[in-house]
Amino acid sequence: MLRLENLTVAVGEREILHDINLEIRPGEVHVLFGPNGSGKTSLLGAIMGFARYRVVSGKIYFQGEDITTWPIDARARLGIGLSFQRPPTVRGVTTRQLVGVCGRGQVEVEALAEELNFRDFLDRDVNLGFSGGELKRSELLQLLAQDPQLVLLDEPESGVDLENIALIGRVINRLLERDVVHREGKSQREIRRGRRKAGLVITHTGYILDYLNTDVGHVLFEGRLSCVGNPHELLDCIQKLGYEECVRCSIENATMAGGQGNYAHGTAGRDSGAGTGGRG
């Protein structure tokens, strides 16, 4: 569904992402770990097409199209949706109006807002004076209305209190068709295999993984993908050893691939129907 090919991205004159290769297939949810400043948000920004992230070389393919130079709105209409880490305030535009825009007028705004316990905020200006957790709920509400094929989530749990983190997790699972629901005439396995929605989730703390089933984990370190594997295993390793350990892996990668930064592709979670396996 999404394929990044030797993607190098700069902000101004400074290269911040180097030779990124990544593929997310339909139905897969990938997690992106990495220390502050490693380039996680920039990677999502480049995929979405924000002007400040200039593609120096490489390609971005989505749904079979080379979207490397497409404008943001065309990418959104083709099915990419992004939950911003720090969304801007839009004065004079209500959340209700924006959710309507996201759903192209085809959604029941009230009903979607009810799901996120967010009805009281519908008539407030977009993000004006919202707390950290309210911002995240507002972002997810917009994505629910937008219903994208590829969901990019930038730290969906940051600033969210314990009470709401389960709610956030539930909504993300729904966005990714990973909520467990009974459907007549279909086994759960069939339902899992029929999933098409894909996701790329940035998490700094990893808390969201307690609520969200994910398939593949990556570590982004100093602008390079330095590691791939089972998300829980990676998180466990990062929690115990810290990102310092990534230095060793990236040195190793560089030596092995002759400085191309071509990191070993893992096999974990390739069959999205098989679940994550590594949980618990």
Binding site: F50, A51, D73, A76, F84, V90, L98, C102, Q146
Partner: peptide, 12 residues
């Protein structure tokens, strides 16, 4: 702000 709304599908 423009990019935010474009990411929701609005043209520039």
């Amino acid at each position: 702000e423009i990019e935010y709304l474009m990411a929701r599908g609005l043209s520039e």
